[in-house]
Amino acid sequence: MTSSPALPSWLTRVGVFDLETTGVDVTRDRIVTAHVGVLDHHGAEIAARTWLADPGVPIPEAATAIHGITSERARRNGSPAPQVVAGVVAALRSLLDQGVPIVAYNAAFDFSLLAHEARRHGIAPLDSPSPVIDPLVIDKTYDRYRPGKRTLEIVAAHYGVDLTGAHDASADAVAAGRVAQALAQRFPLPPSAAELHTRQISWARAQAASLTDYFIRIGRIEPEARLDGRWPVREADPVREVDLMREGRVDA
Score class of each variant (00 low, 15 high):
A81G: 11
V84T: 07
V85A: 04
V88N: 05
A90P: 12
A90S: 15
A90F: 15
L95Y: 04
L96N: 11
Q98F: 02
V100I: 06
I102K: 01
A104P: 00
Y105E: 01
Y105C: 04
N106A: 07
A108Q: 12
F111Q: 04
L114K: 04
A115Y: 02
H116W: 10
A118L: 14
R119S: 09
R120I: 07
H121P: 00
I123Q: 05
L126Y: 05
L126S: 01
S128T: 13
S128D: 13
V132N: 10
I133L: 12
P135H: 11
I138D: 00
K140C: 08
T141R: 10
T141M: 04
D143C: 09
P147R: 15
K149H: 01
T151F: 02
H158E: 15
H158M: 12
V161D: 15
D162A: 14
T164H: 09
T164A: 14
G165M: 05
G165R: 08
G165C: 12
D168F: 00
V174H: 02
A175E: 04
G177P: 09
G177M: 03
R178T: 09
Q181H: 06
A184H: 00
Q185E: 06
R186H: 14
P188K: 04
S192H: 09
S192Y: 10
A193F: 03
H197M: 03
T198Y: 11
T198Q: 15
I201L: 10
I201H: 08
S202E: 14
A206E: 14
A206T: 10
A209N: 11
A209H: 14
T212F: 05
D213R: 05
Y214H: 11
F215I: 14
G219I: 09
R220C: 08
I221A: 11
I221L: 08
I221M: 07
R226P: 00
